[in-house]
Every structure is written in C-alpha cells, then in structure tokens.
Design a binder for these strands. Structure first.
Lengths: 213, 213
DNA sequence: GCCAGAATCTTGACACTGCCCAGATGAGCT
DNA sequence: AGCTCATCTGGGCAGTGTCAAGATTCTGGC
C-alpha cells in the first residue's frame, strides 16, 4: 500500500505525475470546465499552491494532460493497427480511423481538451507538439504504404491525410459534442453511420482527382 | 448618438440584446474562455448583476450567443448558395460547404462556442436547437435535390449528410484550432487543401456504396 | 557527520468570478 | 392620483488563479 518512498507530507516523491493523474481523472469525471487547480491539489492531498512548483499555471497542467491524452490516442490507434496483417494496408488505414473514433468515444472529455488550444496553449509546449506529430505520422505512414502498393490513388498524400483526418475528426466532434442529437441523424444508429462514412471516405481515396486544366 | 429612447440609467430600453451583442463582441475579441458575465455587464454600462434579470445565468447568455451564431451561419451559407443557379445542384452543394468553411474561418471563436455543449447546455435551450436544425436542413435539402436529379448516388441521404458535415466540420475545427500547425500540413496552402478535400468528398457522393451481403 | 543552499510544500493574501439577496427606481395600468 | 411589478443597484458569499513569504526537507560538498 505504501508509495515507493513516502517520507512525509513534504516531498511525497512524485507529486508532478500525481497531479497530472488527478487532473486526468477529474477531466474524465466532470469535464474540462469543472476542473480547477485547487481541486486537483485537494485530490492529491496537497495545499492549493503546491502545483505551482511543478507547473507554470493551470494552462501548463492542462497541456500536460493533453499530451498524455495524445499518447493514449496513439496507443489506441496502434493497438487497432496491429490487428491487421502487415500487407493489409487498406485494413490498417481503416484501423487507424477506427482507433481514432474509438478513443474519442471512450474518452470524450479528454479528447475535447486535447483539441482546445485556448486552454492548453500548445504552441509553446513541446510535449504536446511532439505527441501530436506522432499521431499524425501514424496516419501519414499508413497512407504512404497504401499508395506504394497501389491501394489508393497517386494524389498528394498530404491532401489525402487531410481528407481522412478531417472526416474522422468531424465525426468524433459532432458525436461527442452531441450536435447530431439536434438533427434527424439522432435516430440513425451511430455505428452503422460511422461505418458508412468511413467506407465512403476510403472509396474516395481510390479515385484519381482531376487536375485543374 | 442617442439610443432609440434612453430614458435614464434604469430601463434603458433593450438591455437584453445589448448584452448579447456585447457578449458576441467579447467572444470574437478575446475568445470564450476570457468572457465573464461581469465584463459583459461592464461593456453594457450596467451593474454586475443586471444580466440576471434577462438570463438565468452565464450558460444561458452563452446559449443565446450560440443561437445568434447559428443564425449568422445560415445566412452565410444561404448567401453562398444563391450564387448558383437553381438547377446547379452540385454547385449548390459545394456552396453549402464553402459557406460553412467561410463562416468558421471568419468567426473562429464564435464557431467554437457554438459547438461547445458544456458551456451552452443546448439540450434545454429551444433557440439553439431550432437554429441548429435549420442549418442542418439546408444541407439535407440540398442533398435531396442533388439525389432527385441524379447528381449523387441513391444511398441514404442521412448517411451522405453525415459524410458532408463531418468532413467540413473536421476541416474547420482542425484549422481554427490550429492543430494542423503541428503537422507537415502546415506547409500546404490551406485554400488548395480545402478545395481538394471538398472535391474528393463530392466525388465520393457519386459512388454507389456496396451493400453488406 | 554536518551544514549551507536548493528544492519542495504551506499559509496568507489579492483581485476576480458566478450567483444570490434586499432595497431603490421608474413604467404602465386602473 | 396610487399601485404593482419588472428592472436595475449595491453588497455579500464562496470559489478561483496567481503571487509572495515563511516553514520543512533533501542534497552535495566539506
């Protein structure tokens, strides 16, 4: 039951990650809006200004939470990815999308936080940048592999990345923000809807786009 | 310079919409996070608790702002829509997407607020629901017209709505939240990227999806 | 072993926020 | 006229993010 080395109330070993964990829990339980630095500190059984010795402020803590979220996102995607054979490139492409969607549905609050720049100021936070780039690279690499083996058209890979990412990201956002609940789409089973959208997306990647004359 | 009928400090005529306007300005200038009810009141030259006679609380005011945003979104879309002839159904479909994108790029903070349910609690706000439904109906009607005239496949219209909406919504979100800035996509001109994504989307709507056996 | 300096944590404070209350003010109806 | 009620004010409460000063513990060099 004892922590690795819990000497006393002071210096309890690893307050930094304890705070991040507490913040992740709070975000998932109550959402980003209901999260306060003081409550995080309370959860870690620590005074209200102890976090300032590990983070520059609230935004900095939230950025760390976002970075952890991106790491988990990559893990989820790669877990889905590994279910397909190395030569099933289209299957792996679908898996990347499915992993993205699955993560968003299972961690809606965390997912929202990860894409909220005004809360996390990611521009000056290298951890978030790195985690984001890693997630994007997974998609890009998969698409490149598809193209090398003739599974998708020879269009610009970046352009196709944008199509894939935008479609899946929009699907996640509209669903977890419950926007579709205000439309006729609310009566359509979401799983089937998501699958059709993804199938249409994959089909569109096989089309050679007409170049401007 | 005088208001329509500014009798005195009390009952200055139309405080309700003055507060909404002030809130819209503040959202666009400083973002949703930096908006406080007291600051809105200050902008309207009114005491800090005057807003409570017109709104149930902060969330209620923000919901009103979101509703106003949806109205403007519909206006932007319809303005774009009218540029195309009544029988150019595919052109009008593209116009709906272009209007959506254009509104998001020109009103990023407002756009973000509109799709933030934890701030606006739209579930119990009929104004937001109505405005949202109206925006969706524009897309749905356009797609139905396309289908009637054979411009898109005979697949489920709702499914195609979801593809269109998700793709354009994701494009908007990823761009205005500056997520693409952390990826190789940052070096690609956005206009061309958006156009290619939209072209691929439209092309995919003409494909007949394979039914599950 | 021991002690100075650095790291960590606490307490206290300030300005700000959302929300609620009692009271002041004026508009509109009878 | 007078009365009623919606509107607006000011003060107050609990909670927040952030900072400064002091207390406590760890660490490296002797």
């Amino acid at each position: 039951m004892a922590e690795p080395h819990r000497q006393s109330d002071y210096h309890h070993g690893d307050l930094r990650s304890a705070l991040i964990d507490a913040a992740i829990d709070l975000v998932q339980e109550e959402g980003v809006g209901a999260l306060s630095l003081r409550q995080v500190a309370r959860r870690a059984h620590v005074s209200h200004s102890a976090p300032y010795h590990h983070f520059r402020g609230k935004a900095d803590l939230l950025a760390e939470v976002a970075a952890a979220g991106f790491d988990r996102l990559v893990q989820t995607i790669e877990a889905e990815f590994q279910k397909y054979a190395a030569d099933d490139h289209l299957g792996r492409l679908v898996a990347v999308g499915a992993g993205y969607l699955s993560f968003a549905l299972q961690n809606p609050s965390l997912f929202r936080l990860m894409f909220r720049p005004e809360m996390t100021s990611p521009g000056d936070h290298p951890g978030v940048r790195a985690a984001e780039s890693r997630a994007f690279a997974t998609l890009q690499d998969t698409l490149v592999a598809c193209q090398l083996h003739g599974n998708v058209s020879s269009d610009s890979v970046l352009s196709m990345c944008m199509s894939c990412w935008a479609t899946m990201h929009g699907l996640c956002m509209l669903w977890i923000d419950q926007v579709v609940d205000e439309t006729p789409l609310r009566d359509v089973p979401f799983d089937g809807l998501a699958q059709e959208v993804q199938e249409r997306l994959v089909a569109s990647l096989t089309l050679k786009m007409a170049k401007a004359p």
